[in-house]
Simulated assay, not measured.
Amino acid sequence: MAATQGTEVEALDTPCLLLDEARVRANVARMRARLASLGVAFRPHLKTAKSREVARLAMGAPAGPAIVSTLREAEYFCEAGLRDVIYGVGIAPDKLARVARIRASGADLAVILDSSEQAEAVAAHAARSGDRLPVLIEVDADGHRSGVAPEDADALVAIGRRLVAGGADLRGVLLHAGDSYALSDPEALAAAAEAERVAAVTAAGILRADGLPCPVVSVGSTPTARFARNLTGVTEVRAGVFMFGDLFQAGVGAVEPEDIALSVLATVIGHQRAKGWIIVDAGWMALSRDRGTARQGLDQGYGVVCDRDGTPYPDLIVADANQEHGIVALRRGSTAALPDLPIGTRLRILPNHACATGAQHGSYHVLDGAGRVAAVWPRINGW
């Protein structure tokens, strides 16, 4: 059925996405307080939420700041009043016209880049259009993905000079400590956060020493935001998945399992008792193919299985998944008893990766304190 305010969970069509608003609010408040204690601004990443209602909970004000991962997100949020926003994926030259259209709507949309070729395209665009397009140079914090090496003065300065000469607005540097996702020890995570900070400050210092502007020093990932101890020289921190949490981040230690706000509601549709299987109507189309926890100390399969109130059953996971079927079973080696879950039983499944699971759905069914649907919040997908 179509959910309305006050709808009971048992009445929802499954599979569907559930969101605990109280947990989202608590997660955001905790992150804001932590970063305030370290003296830095917070720029929430909206790539996980992809929802205006969640964005309002995350941002300090309707105008932002925020960061997005697609231009579709930028359009969607800017239509609702977001003004201070970064498009956090390296700019492709053919996307500059679309960036210009978003900026023409009144949004201060900045882009990132890490090469002289991109800088040349942005400079040419700025010179041609007269739009002082804001740019942050992406710096490689840890060899995880993209970015200029933080000590590569020649590359940093060449990019910065070309942007300024072409009339672009050089805003600063941006880093993402993606390798922190492979860690779990608090000391190692704190060290990763410090390495990210040092790389950011080093790159910013190179630009400033050459007389180039660098007002923004932006770092961020959920793990390093959680474990950073010193952010001297940093102006802002970005994080996004912490708002919902997921099993992967719980495995890292960046969130607690009880803080996970997102789950997939599923229904028991069958049993294979000789195999110890319970079959549910949520397969990888509802849960996603993400198996990130398989690389961690505790493999959570395709998700942890909870009762309809969100309490996990001991050692019960989605052990395997087909397109529309989830195979629920006890974790290998478990001595727990398989629960008796008759056909029709409603279950909640905690996701491995909130971003990937969310992307399978078109809306959040937002729960109130009594476990009823308080609202339905649309979300978007696409690029």
Rank of each mutant, 00 (worst) to 15 (best):
S334Y: 04
E236L: 15
Q323I: 15
F242K: 00
R295V: 14
Q300F: 02
C306R: 04
V219E: 03
A239Y: 07
M285R: 04
G333C: 04
A266C: 11
G270P: 11
H325S: 08
L212H: 02
T235K: 12
D320G: 10
Q323H: 08
G283L: 08
E236P: 15
R229V: 09
R291L: 00
A337D: 11
P215L: 11
L262R: 10
T222D: 06
L287E: 05
A336Y: 06
F244V: 02
S218E: 04
S218H: 06
P213M: 04
A261E: 09
P213G: 13
I327G: 12
L298H: 15
I278D: 11
D210C: 06
R289C: 10
C214Y: 13
D210S: 10
G220K: 08
I278L: 12
A225S: 09
F248W: 00
G211K: 08
D259F: 14
G326K: 04
P213Q: 09
I260L: 13
V268W: 00
I269K: 01
L231T: 08
I278P: 06
S288P: 05
T232W: 09
V280E: 06
G283T: 11
V252K: 10
N230T: 04
T293S: 05
Q323G: 11
Y313F: 13
L316W: 15
K275C: 01
P223M: 01
E258G: 04
P314I: 09
A282G: 03
V305G: 14
V252I: 03
G310M: 13
A337T: 14
A321T: 11
K275A: 01
D299A: 11
W284D: 07
G251W: 02
R308Y: 02
S221I: 04
A329N: 12
T311W: 15
V280R: 02
G220R: 08
D246N: 06
P314S: 09
P215Q: 13
A282N: 03
G303N: 01
G240L: 03
G283C: 07
T224L: 08
S218F: 03
I279Y: 13
V237F: 15
V280K: 01
L287C: 07
D246S: 04
E324W: 06
V241E: 10
I317K: 14
A282T: 02
D309L: 15
G283R: 03
A329K: 08
A329F: 13
D307H: 12
E258P: 00
D309K: 08
H325L: 07
W277D: 14
G233I: 05
A261M: 10
D290L: 03
A266Q: 07
I327R: 08
C214H: 13
A337V: 04
A282C: 05
L262A: 12
A336R: 15
A254N: 11
M285V: 03
D259I: 02
A274H: 11
V264M: 00
F248E: 03
R229A: 03
S263P: 01
N230E: 04
V280G: 08
Q300R: 11
V304M: 13
L338T: 10
L265W: 00
I278V: 14
T267M: 05
G245E: 10
D315T: 04
I327A: 07
A274S: 08
R229N: 03
D290K: 01
F244M: 03
A266D: 05
A329P: 13
P257S: 06
